[in-house]
Each structure stands twice: as structure tokens, then as C-alpha cells.
Amino acid sequence: MGPEMDKLGVVTTFLHNIVVYNIPLLYGTVGEIMVEKSGSLNLGVEGIMAVGAIFGYIVGCYANSLGVGILTAFAAGALCGLLFAVLTVSLQANQNITGLTLTTFGLGVYFFVGNGVKAVRWPAMNDYPAIKEGFADIAIPGLSQLPVVGRGLFDHNLLVYLGVAVALAMWWYLRYTRPGLRLRAVGENPASADSVGVNVKRMKYLHICLGCGIMGVGGYYMGLNMSGSFNSSCWINGYGWIAVALVIFANWNPALAILGTFIFGFFNTLRVSGSSLAAAFPGPLGWLAAVPSQLYQALPFLITAVVLVLTSVRKREGSGLPASLGLNYFREER
């Protein structure tokens, strides 16, 4: 293999890493879009992903099945969602407080359960062939043969494809189906939706649980990415908060969230592989080595802050921000 091939190899690896390490972000984002479209601002994404991750990973390993892991992660996330819904929809608790508490609680559960299992016997991913094989890359015939981008974009594990499929399905659901339209109506103006016969409570419960379940699967994916090695830093490592930012960046549109994941993922991957790109292309990209890694970490939040300001300057035209986001709906006050 010549040096030119090596250089292209660096680019391919770079593209590959953007996808592999950032699709969990897409799960968190798409889940949060669903929750926010129902009018609820859930700041517990980080905690919910952590809870989904720990239960999905442990149960998946013991069952030696990726499918069981995914379903468990979904169920654990959805349970957190149910807790959030009971407190904010039925019991009218403040959404910000409930979400933040869910993050503290979720991270507590993550470490408590993880440390507890570790004290007995921690399941190592290598011992579970079905999980390892289930998580192995699957090349898309044809597309994966393309030069450079082929292996970069079209040779990935099952959860990558699933994540993109979920995002597209949700985009279609919100835009073109009747329940999707009703859901958006609930997020915009629950009182009007209620008056035309939409069951606001049921819509909120259902979509909060569904959205949180999707976040849980994203958490599980992060655990698998770390090969399930459990130590003092959480697998989720702030991705839940980036997901909250990405929802805004994607303008509450699940299809745009895919694009947003690539953009945020691009910076996130530059942080890790910037130096190898700089080494492969010292002329045009040599400066990359000098950029502090913390700038890459701050960029998603900086960009989102700018987007927030710009969209508010242009007022609500074209903004996907649900009008009643963060406000509880109390029927008797209609």
C-alpha cells in the first residue's frame, strides 16, 4: 500500500468514526425531539441514556442477545419517561426540575447498578459472541465498494442503520401522519388540541415514553462502543446534553437531525483524530494539530447558542420550536 493509499485510509477512518461514535447522539436527539414535540422539555436525556445503557448492556449480555439488549434499553428508557410523564403531566411538577432530577437519579442508578454488578461479576463483551457478532459491521452491497466513502459511510453496525431508520421514520410520522399532526398540535397549543377532541394526556404519555425509550437505546449503543468496559467515567459522558443542543440545531426536525449529527460528529471526531489528519496532510491541514481539543468540545454548544439567537431574531417564522414547550397543561385552566 503506497503512502497515497494510507492518506486516503486516514480519510476513510475519519468518516467511519464520525458515524460510529456519533450516531448515539442521533438516538438521543430524535428521542428528545419526540418528547419536545409533545410540549415537554425533558432535561433528563443524560440520565435516561445512562439508565438505558446499564440495563441494556447487562441484561443483553446475560441473555447473550443484542435484540434483548436493545429491547431492555428501550424499556428502561421508557420507564424513566413514564416517571417523567407521571410527575409532569399528571402531577403538574415543573419540567426543568423533574428533568434535572432525572439526570442526577439516572447517573446514580447507572453507577449503583454498575458497581453492584461489577462487585459480583462484570460481563465482558468479548465473552458474548452473539453480542459481538450482532454489533459487527455489515457492509451494504454495492455502496460499500465506493472509494473512500464506501467503507466510511456504508459499512456499519446494525444500530447505525437502525438509528438512521428511526430518524427517517419519525420525520415521516411527524410530517405526514394524523397522529403526528395531532402531536404537533399538542406541543403548539394543547388547549386547542383538547377542544377538537385530541386526548392531550394520552398523547403526551405515549410520546414521552416512546422518545425516552429511543434515548435508552442510544445509551446502550454507547456502552457497546466502549466494549462495555465499566469504570469511573460514565459511558454517556455528556452526549445527552449535546443531544439537547442538537435538537435546537436541527430545528426539531428528525431528518435534519441526521445532518446535524454529522456536523457535530465532524467536530467531535476532529478532536480525536485531528492530529492524524494533520500528520497525513501536513500542508493543507497541518494547523489542525494546534487547535485546542476543548474548542471542539465547546463547538456544539457555541453553534447552538448562535442558532438560538439567530432563530429568535427572525422570530418564529419557520422555527420548529413548539410554542408551549416547557409549559404544563392544566385542563381546568383552559
Binding site: 476543548q294 468540545q297 465547546a298 454548544f301 447552538t304 438560538l308
Partner: peptide
């Protein structure tokens, strides 16, 4: 920003948290 443009303060202050945090880690590392 809230007063001038109606920027959502919950989301804005959330973003500012992380910008400050990575500024601090930058100083520390």
C-alpha cells in the same frame, strides 16, 4: 437576548454552561 429578541433563556443558559465549562478545562489542560 431574552429581552431584545425573545431568545429562550432556559436553552441559552444551558449552552452557556458548557461553553464556560470547556473554557475552564482549556485553562486547566
Amino acid at each position: 437576548l431574552k429581552v431584545k429578541f425573545g431568545t429562550n433563556e432556559t436553552l441559552m443558559t444551558l449552552m452557556l454552561n458548557y461553553i464556560a465549562l470547556y473554557f475552564l478545562t482549556f485553562l486547566g489542560e
